[in-house]
Structure formats: C-alpha cells, structure tokens
Design a protein around this nucleic acid. Structure first.
Lengths: 145, 145
DNA sequence: TATTGTTATACTCTATAACTATA
DNA sequence: TATAGTTATAGAGTATAACAATA
C-alpha cells in the first residue's frame, strides 16, 4: 500500500475498532437478559450448524483458547443445553452436541422478533444492507489474517 | 421489510455478530500486550480528539455506563495518562484531559507499524477496503439505533 | 428533586499456567 | 513426547445498586 494510504489505514483501523467495540457493547446490552450470553449463543449456533464438535474445534471457530471455550461449554452443559458424546476412536477427545433444550433455545432465539440486531438491520435501506452483507466476509477475512 | 427478508436479516445478524465477536477477540489478543487495553486506548483516542470531556461524555461516546467509564478513567489516571480538571461552572462535573504521557502513548501507538489491525487492513485490496470504509458508518448507525 | 460522579459488588469473558489422561 | 481436555487463578470489561455532592 502506498505511504499516503498507510495513514488512511490508520484512520480506518481506529474507526473500525471503535465501531465494532460499540456495536458489540450494544449487542451485549440488548441481548435478552433472560436468555444466554453472547458467547454462549455463539457456541450453540456453531454446534447447530456444525454437528458434533470438540472443544478445540469450537475454540478455533470462535478464535478463542480451548480453555475459554471449555468454560462456556461447561456452563451450557450445566444448563442442559449441550451434552457430551465419546469420540468414536480417540478417547481423549470429547464431542459436544445440542440437547433438545439447546435446539429449542436456538429456535426460540431465532423466533424472537424482539431480537435487537434483526430490528436494527431492518431499519437500514436496501443499499446499506448490501454494503453490510459485502463487508461481512471481509471482516471475517480480517479476523483470520 | 418484506417477510422473506426477515429471514435474511436473521442470517445477516447471526453472521455479523459472529464476525465482529471474532474480530474483537482477535483485536484484543493482538493489541500489543505491553500497551494499553482496547477500551483504555479508546478513551484516550476520544480525549485526544474531543478535548476535555466528562465521564458521562465519554461513556455516551463509547456506549457504556458512566460507572464503567469511571473504572477505565481511574486506571488511566493511576497510570498518569489522563488528569482531572475542575469544570469551570459546575462543580459536580469533572473534566478529563490527556497528560503529556497520555498524548505520547497515543503517538507511540499510532506510530507502531506493528499495529495488527493496520497490517491486516493492508492485506485487503482496494475494493475490499472501500467496502469496509462504506460499512463503518453503517455499523455506527446500527450501534446507535 | 435531578444530575454527576463514586463506591461496592458481581458476573461475563478471556488468558496463562499447571495438571491428567490418552495417543 | 505430543495432544485433548480440566482445573486454578487472574485480570479486563461491564453492569446494577446505593451513596454523596452539587445544582
């Protein structure tokens, strides 16, 4: 990138960091307090989509340490939303799957029209929504780089 | 929004939440560990741009509670990066400003080419960067809505 | 009475380090 | 020896509730 663009990248980086920090705070605050915390819902969503996964699989998917994911899974297990399955060939590994209650929690969450982010997105016009849709894979790429 | 788009908004919401969650985790992990935490840097950046500000001003800007911002400012004050000024007319209020050390921290941070996010953005092509630039105000709007 | 800020307390999220069990 | 997971501990980040000072 040319030199004058480094300064620009700097400004973009600052604004982007501020914007996602604010948005995540808002998300956390608006997440239905009676429901699950953000990271718990994230893990449930991964399990719903990706079938049985190990702690390490989930940690990689969410860009966190296995120990951190272990805490989250422990809470979800305690609440009966996920359960363990033995790994068929490697007894060190533990596979996690959604329980019926866990699947129901996902469904309930999805069905909630009160879901704040969905409503917030609904206030965008079509062009703005398209920009956001285009930005998501780029944000993912940045996170992975 | 038409009904079929509600389902789409739902998917977008899920992907967006996952993407920004991952990105923030990555940012936190990559932030130079010897430097300040993200929210501390955020507060310093606001003060650098916005001149003297009260706890409540800063909390509003960062979408957090004044008590939470108070903790952050307390840490920064303890480290000598910000200092208090009496408000000229309202003795309840406390204005915070950067100290020399605080301004130096900002400059140092900006100068660090090791800044992870800047490097990550540098790997995007021009078109991707433009999408991201266009997305930032939309993310801000979503956070405010 | 309303507003600004502080103090106390607690919970979420995440990390590092040290350990156990299995491969 | 290397890998998957667990346990213990700690720190950042944030919230709510109760309080004090000032307007």
């Amino acid at each position: 990138m040319p030199v004058h663009d480094e300064a620009r990248a700097d400004v973009i980086a600052k604004d982007l960091a501020a914007a996602i920090g604010r948005l995540l705070r808002r998300l956390r605050a608006e997440a239905n307090p009676t429901e699950l915390a953000l990271s718990q819902m994230g893990a449930l969503a991964r399990l719903e989509q990706g079938g049985p996964m190990t702690t390490a699989d989930l940690a990689r998917a969410e860009l966190m340490k296995p120990q951190s994911m272990g805490v989250i899974l422990g809470t979800l297990e305690h609440e009966g939303l996920v359960e363990r399955q033995p790994h068929p060939t490697d007894r060190r590994q533990v596979l996690f799957v959604l329980t019926e209650a866990g699947a129901a929690a996902r469904t309930r969450h999805r069905a909630m029209k009160r879901d704040w982010l969905v409503r917030a997105l609904g206030q965008l016009d079509a062009a703005q929504l398209e920009v956001l849709v285009a930005a998501i894979p780029i944000l993912q790429k940045v996170g992975d780089s």
